[in-house]
């Protein structure tokens, strides 16, 4: 009994990983982006954090949110994570929060050890396909959205690794803005409450 190519067949599989669709990032890396002219509300979702608590994006209304979709297997994501930890430390007391949404197929089994090993200081949620669809499919990671205090996506999404300074510029521009007063809320009283003690 034999194969057409002999008793033993050495099979060389030339790996033709499907051609990747040519890709255009939202802007060249390092280029400051312009704020969205007519910002739209960030799609709301509910996901679990590592403690099993349900977290709604809309719970963060009133805060500036850096919403980062990432995965433990994503090298460029790993480069950004120390920046996000720094942002969380630096701006947390000014109404800013980082939310990381992991897109790991292996779930918490993969993500919890990563959180522990890298000592992440911001909240991590476990993503799913439904949330992925809400945010454009997330075919590539990292993908990051800056959400203003009113819950709107303030800048075009950052697809792929960008300069840290772009994030800093965007966060600081949002920190400098006051949120639109909520119904029944007087903007003056809010600003007095936020004034530093003299």
């Amino acid at each position: 009994m034999r194969l057409t190519f002999g008793k033993c067949l050495i099979l060389s599989a030339l790996v033709g990983v499907p051609a990747f669709i040519s890709w255009a990032t939202s802007e060249p890396a390092g280029t400051p982006s312009q704020a969205v002219k007519n910002p739209k509300a960030a799609a709301d979702f509910t996901l679990k954090d590592e403690n099993g608590a349900s977290v709604k994006l809309s719970d963060y209304r009133g805060k500036i949110v850096l919403l980062n979709f990432w995965a433990t297997w994503c090298g460029p994501c790993a480069l950004e994570i120390p920046w996000f930890m720094e942002f969380e430390r630096q701006y947390k007391n000014r109404g800013f929060a980082v939310l990381g949404v992991s897109m790991d197929d292996d779930g918490w089994q993969a993500v919890k050890p990563y959180i522990a090993e890298h000592k992440l200081n911001y909240r991590i949620l476990l993503g799913n396909d439904s949330v992925s669809q809400l945010y454009g499919g997330l075919d590539s990671l990292p993908t990051t959205f800056l959400i203003d205090r009113n819950g709107n996506v303030a800048f075009p999404p950052h697809i792929g690794l960008i300069s840290k300074n772009v994030y800093i510029d965007e966060i600081q521009s949002l920190l400098g803005k006051q949120s639109a007063p909520r119904p029944g809320e007087h903007p003056l009283s809010a600003s007095l409450l936020l004034s530093p003690a003299k």
Partner: peptide, 16 residues
């Protein structure tokens, strides 16, 4: 057979 892979470039990664 099945080939499991995960691809990236220097700026982004594609899902496995």
């Amino acid at each position: 057979g099945k080939l499991r892979y995960q691809a990236c470039n220097n700026e982004m990664c594609f899902r496995p």
